[in-house]
Design a protein around this nucleic acid. Structure first.
Lengths: 196, 196
DNA sequence: CCAAGAAAAGCACGACCGTTCGGATGCGTC
DNA sequence: GACGCATCCGAACGGTCGTGCTTTTCTTGG
């Protein structure tokens, strides 16, 4: 790895943490430069524009999500157990993935109404994530751990809801029992998806 | 109502719509002034600072939430039916309350990590909302429509999750069946809370 | 060890930010 | 008609934003 791409990823990692606190739009070249010990122009040289930087941050965050959540999940045995692993890793990600909560959740509510390349990239990323989630749940169905007639989209919808509620309860309300509540909700979801 | 407070609320209404699209932090005095047909300074005269403006927006949004969701809900018969009304009005609010989705959801993920008066006000508002929701659910318990040993906090947590997933699915993914999915999830939640 | 090229710094720009200030304008009151 | 008060305006402030240019410093392959 050449020096250029090395500092580039270092910048993106720092930027992702910063953006998880102040949002992708709140990202500033100046503060990001200070944070990384670079000059404004020195940093800017790695990106064509601020928009390109934001998209780069999303890409880097995706890599980290794959490393911290998806890869460990896929390393567990197929079926029920894997769905559980996905949920647990996902929960852990939201608290330890970035300095200020899940970057994607923040980015979604920031860019859901702002058309443009950033939203497009984010949408692609979210669709991809949903697809992966449904695939994992589908294997649990194939294994017979979940009902054969399970509505995958509905399951993914409700799982996403639990994750979002956990993030909300955790980051905004700072409720100490947020994780317990999320687990309880998850158990109820899985129980209702069991084969009858 | 004097002229001053009249334009003030007009400003706040406009600001709320604008903020629902670009976020509370994305609010700018300049564009807001243009939007309302005022001069920058003329507009600014109504608020002590930009932060005060943001807090004012939250207050105005709360008023609108009470008018559009809470008041109609409390006008329906106590119990099961009222919980249902709350959910339906809440869903409608998310699509029709503001130009760019629910302002509170946007504000939460924007300010959950930014200490200060805005976050404090937002937290107060959210706590208050949760309290109201739990009160409404509690009446359904008292009426015998829901189980006597129902965990109110857990119910509120999961209901919030459905609302958030709906917002996510609606505003970001633009899924046409988001409302149906939310209703299905709600039915499952209520069913599991029924007395046994 | 040196030259070629990449990487970072330095500097400056135009635009826009929140905010301040002095002065118009209109409106009730003596 | 003169006054005080509320409302709004235009102009300007210092600061920060993203983004180009030019120059210096560092990295690296032969």
């Amino acid at each position: 790895m050449t020096k250029g791409t090395e500092t580039r990823t270092a910048i993106l990692d720092e930027a992702a943490d910063l953006a998880s606190r102040v949002g992708l739009g709140g990202l500033t070249i100046g503060t990001l430069a200070t944070q990384t010990g670079l000059s404004k122009s020195g940093l800017f040289g790695h990106f064509a524009s601020k928009e390109a930087l934001q998209i780069g941050v999303l890409g880097r965050a995706r890599e980290r999500f794959v490393d911290r959540v998806l890869r460990p999940t896929l390393a567990t045995p197929r079926g029920d157990q894997r769905v559980r692993a996905l949920f647990e890793h996902w929960l852990a990600w939201q608290q330890g993935g970035f300095a200020g909560g899940c970057l994607f959740i923040d980015a979604v509510s920031e860019f859901d109404d702002q058309e443009g390349p950033v939203r497009d990239e984010l949408l692609r990323s979210e669709r991809d994530k949903a697809e992966t989630v449904m695939t994992i749940v589908a294997t649990a169905v194939a294994e017979g751990d979940l009902a054969a007639d399970l509505d995958l989209e509905q399951f993914a919808f409700e799982l996403q809801g639990i994750i979002l509620a956990h993030h909300y309860s955790c980051r905004m309300l700072r409720a100490p029992d947020a994780t317990d509540r999320a687990r309880t909700a998850f158990e109820r979801l899985v129980a209702s998806a069991r084969p009858r």
